[in-house]
């Protein structure tokens, strides 16, 4: 059976991140430690960030979930590492627009994240892709508050 439509979802770069996730594990010295679940399906992510002087110095994740959620977490940590908090949040906004199938700001180089664009065609899987980004946003906001 051919699955042309599936190939839009399971792009090679996504499967690569799933198979060999970047930044997997937990930071020893974190300033932010967030656990987030997807209550309907059991996906779970534990995100540790090290935020200093408004910069995400380091990011790691751990967790369990499907290929999309884990690949997205891997890509997210890669994307925000070294960026200032505003940029990280901006990326998150762009990613959210991309998932909702809206026009998104393409002036920013999204790198591997762009590969997740096909997820927007699979409504049931959007929440898999956004879990890690939501965790990051929550973490950054908590850091700002403290």
């Amino acid at each position: 059976m051919s699955f042309n439509n599936l190939d839009q979802l399971y792009r090679q770069v996504i499967m690569d991140h799933y198979k060999t996730p970047r930044n997997k594990g937990a930071l020893e010295e974190d300033s932010v430690n967030i656990e987030m679940n997807n209550p309907t399906c059991g996906d779970r992510i534990q995100l540790t960030l090290q935020v200093e002087d408004g910069i995400v110095k380091d990011a790691k994740f751990d967790g369990e979930g499907c290929s999309i959620s884990m690949a997205s977490a891997s890509m997210m940590t890669q994307a925000v590492k070294g960026k200032d908090v505003d940029t990280a949040l901006k990326l998150s906004g762009i990613f959210s627009d991309m998932m909702l199938g809206k026009e998104y700001d393409d002036s920013v180089d999204l790198g591997d994240i762009e590969a997740l664009q096909g997820v927007s065609k699979f409504p049931a899987r959007i929440k898999c892709a956004t879990l890690a980004w939501k965790a990051m946003e929550k973490g950054v906001h908590e850091e700002e508050k403290s």
């Binding site: 699955f3 979802l9 309907t40 399906c41 059991g42 979930g65 499907c66 290929s67 699979f122 898999c128």
Partner: peptide, 21 residues
């Protein structure tokens, strides 16, 4: 293969199953 991924592939073949907890 994670059950979500199984369910998505089946869905693309017109087969509805549940995946999750």
């Amino acid at each position: 293969v994670h059950p979500h991924d199984v369910a998505t592939v089946l869905d693309m073949s017109g087969i509805a199953v549940r995946a999750g907890h």
